[in-house]
C-alpha cells in the first residue's frame, strides 16, 4: 500500500460494514493518492489510511485535533467503533469513486 502514492489512483476492495450506506462491503473504491499533495485533508473527506496495525482502512474524517491529527469514523454509527487519531503521514488518499 505504501507504493500506492507513486501512482495517482489506486483501487481497493472494501471489507466491513462501518461505511454503510455510503460504501458497502465488497464495493471497489477508487482512491486519488495525490489528493493531498497541495492541500490538507478536511472534515467530511472519505480517506484511505494505514492503521497502526499496518492495514488499510477506509473512514470519514470527523474532525481535526489541535495537534493536527485526524479523528476518523464510519458512516454507519451502529457499527463504527473508536479509532485512534490518524496522523497526516498515514493518510494514503481520498476516495473519489466507487463501483
Amino acid at each position: 500500500m505504501i507504493f500506492s502514492r507513486l501512482f495517482p489512483f489506486s483501487i481497493h476492495i472494501v471489507k466491513g460494514h462501518s461505511m454503510q450506506p455510503s460504501i458497502n462491503e465488497s464495493d471497489r473504491v477508487v482512491v486519488f493518492n495525490w489528493a493531498y499533495l497541495f492541500s490538507q485533508p478536511k472534515s467530511g473527506d472519505v480517506v484511505v489510511f494505514r492503521g497502526s496495525d499496518g492495514r488499510g482502512y477506509v473512514k470519514r474524517i470527523a474532525a481535526v485535533t489541535e495537534k493536527g491529527e485526524f479523528l476518523v469514523e464510519g458512516d454507519n454509527k451502529g457499527d463504527s467503533r473508536k479509532l485512534p487519531p490518524v496522523r497526516r503521514s498515514a493518510i494514503i488518499g481520498r476516495v473519489v469513486g466507487k463501483y
Binding site: 489506486s10 476492495i13 460504501i23 492503521g51 488499510g56 473508536k82
Partner: peptide, 18 residues
Amino acid sequence: AKPTLVYAHCDVPCGIYE
C-alpha cells in the same frame, strides 16, 4: 492494478479509545 483490501471496520483497533 490489483485492488488491495481496505477495512471498513475495526478488528484490531477496536478497544482503543480516546
